[in-house]
Design a protein around this nucleic acid. Structure first.
Lengths: 240, 240
DNA sequence: ATGGCAATTGGGGTTTACCCTGGGGAATTG
DNA sequence: CAATTCCCCAGGGTAAACCCCAATTGCCAT
C-alpha cells in the first residue's frame, strides 16, 4: 500500500512524509514528486491507494492532476492540500470526483492530527473536508447562492476588467445577454441595486468582484487562466 | 545574543527554530511567540538582536509589531517573513524602518540557505530582500508608477466596490476630486483610456482593481482593514 | 398539451463613470 | 524668489453601466 505526495515545496513534502510514516505504519512506501505532471505519471505507474495533491504546482495544477488520475484509476483516494479555502477549487473538485469516490480537502494550516485523520478517513473510503470548507460546500449546493457556469463566466470577465461590450464579443453573446447574466450574478451575491435603498453606495460591478474574491469564488491564478483563455482567440492582443 | 520568532503557525516556527539553531551557533537563545502583541512584549523585555516576524498574525500584524519594536529599539534587526510578495507591505515597511536600520524581507517559500543568509546579513547590519521583491522595491521608488497616498486611498475604495459619490462622502471630498484621483491612478497603472485606441475593451475601474491585485498593491486583508475604517463612521451600516 | 422555469433578446429609459480643459492653493525644491 | 509637483475643484460632454417591462425560445415535469 503506497502513498504518493505531490507538492512543489520541499519543506511541506518532508513534513507530510514524516507525519504519515510515523502515524500510518501500514503504508511503508511513500513517494514524493514535485509537480503535477510527475504526479500523474507516478500515480499511473505506482497505482497508489492514496494521493496527496497540492493545488498550486508547476506544469499541471493539482486539480487537473486529480482529474487525470481519477479518470484512469477511479479507486484512488485523493486528498487536496491547499493554502486557501477557495470555493473555485471545491467547485471543480466536486465535478471531478466520482460519485462514490473518496476524497479529502485539507488546508495547509491544518494540525497534524487533522491530516492523519483525513488520511485514515480517505483510506477507509470516507471523505474528509476541512472544517471551514463545509460552509463553502454548503454554498455550492444552495440554489440561491450557487452560481451557474454562465454567471461564473461573467464574473471572471468583469474581474478581469472587461466591458460589457468586450465580454459579449468574446463569449459570442449580445450585450443584453451579458447584462442579464450580470444582473442575476449581482442578485445571487446579494448586492443591492440602485433603485432599492436609493442610498446605494455600491458600484455593483466592482462590489461583486470584491465579494467574490472574499468568498473565494475567484482568485488570481484562476483569473490568469481565464485571461489567457479569453485572449488567445483575439490575435490583436490587449494593452497591459 | 537572542533571536525572537513570531509566527502563528507552529510548523513554521519549529522549522525556523531548527534551522537557525543549527546554522547560527552564536545564538543559543531562540524564543518563540505566536501573535503580534506577544512579539512586541517579548521584544521589549528580551531586547533581541534579531526578530523574525510573520506578517499575518493574530492581535497585531507583523508590520505593526515591527513599528512598535523599532520605535523603542531602533537597533533591532527585523526580518519579515511573508507568504506574499505584496507591494503594500514593502511600502509600509519602507516607512517604518529607520534610515540606517537593518531589515530583511523573505518569502515563506525561500530555501533554507536563503533564510540563513538573510539572518546573517541582518545580524551584521545589512539588508536582505528576497529576489523577486527587488522589482517591487524598484516600483516604490519610481515616480511614474509609485502611487501617492491619495491615489492609494481611492484605489482601496473602488476595490471595495464604492461609487464615486460614496467615496466622496466618506473622504469628505467632491465627486470631481475623487474622479481626479482615479484619473491619475488609472494613468499610473497604465490602463488605456476610452478615447485612445477607441477599441478599449476595459472598464478602467475594474481593470485597475485587477492589476493592482496582481501587482500586490492591494490584498484582501488590507481591504478589510480599509472597510472597517470606512464604515465605522457610518452608523447606518451597509448591506452585505 | 400545459404550465412553470431559465436564458436570451429587445425597446426605451436614468444614472454613473469617464473625458477634456483649465484654474487655484499648498507644500517642496533649487 | 521662482519652479515644480501634488491635490482639489469646476463645467460641460460622451459613453457605458444599470433599470423596468415584455416577448421569445427551449427544456422539463406533472
Amino acid at each position: 500500500m503506497t502513498i504518493l505526495i505531490a507538492d512543489d515545496e520541499e519543506r511541506d513534502r518532508k513534513w507530510l512524509k514524516e507525519l504519515l510514516s510515523s502515524h500510518l505504519p501500514e503504508c511503508p512506501s511513500i513517494v514524493e514528486v514535485a509537480d503535477g505532471q510527475a504526479a500523474i505519471d507516478s500515480a499511473l505507474k505506482l497505482r497508489p491507494k492514496l494521493v496527496f495533491l497540492d493545488i498550486k504546482m508547476p506544469k499541471q495544477s493539482g486539480i487537473k492532476a486529480a482529474e487525470q488520475i481519477l479518470q484512469q484509476l477511479p479507486e484512488t483516494g485523493v486528498i487536496m492540500l491547499s493554502n486557501f479555502a477557495d470555493e473555485v477549487y471545491v467547485r471543480q473538485l466536486w465535478r471531478i470526483v466520482p460519485a462514490n469516490g473518496a476524497f479529502g480537502y485539507v488546508l495547509k494550516n491544518a494540525s497534524n492530527e487533522q491530516v492523519v485523520e483525513a488520511a485514515r478517513a480517505v483510506l477507509s473510503g470516507d471523505c474528509w473536508v476541512h472544517p471551514g470548507i463545509a460552509r463553502v460546500i454548503q454554498r455550492t449546493q444552495n440554489r440561491a447562492t450557487n452560481l451557474t457556469a454562465a454567471e461564473y463566466e461573467a464574473l471572471a470577465c468583469i474581474a478581469l476588467g472587461l466591458t460589457d461590450h468586450a465580454i459579449a464579443k468574446r463569449l459570442y453573446l449580445t450585450e443584453k445577454a451579458v447584462q442579464s447574466r450580470l444582473k442575476s450574478l449581482y442578485s445571487k451575491l446579494g448586492i443591492p441595486g440602485r433603485t432599492e435603498a436609493h442610498d446605494t453606495d455600491f458600484n455593483q460591478r466592482c462590489r461583486s468582484v470584491c465579494l467574490a474574491t472574499r468568498r473565494g469564488l475567484i482568485n488570481q491564478s484562476e483569473l490568469e487562466d481565464w485571461e489567457s483563455k479569453l485572449l488567445e482567440t483575439k490575435s490583436g492582443g490587449l494593452a497591459q
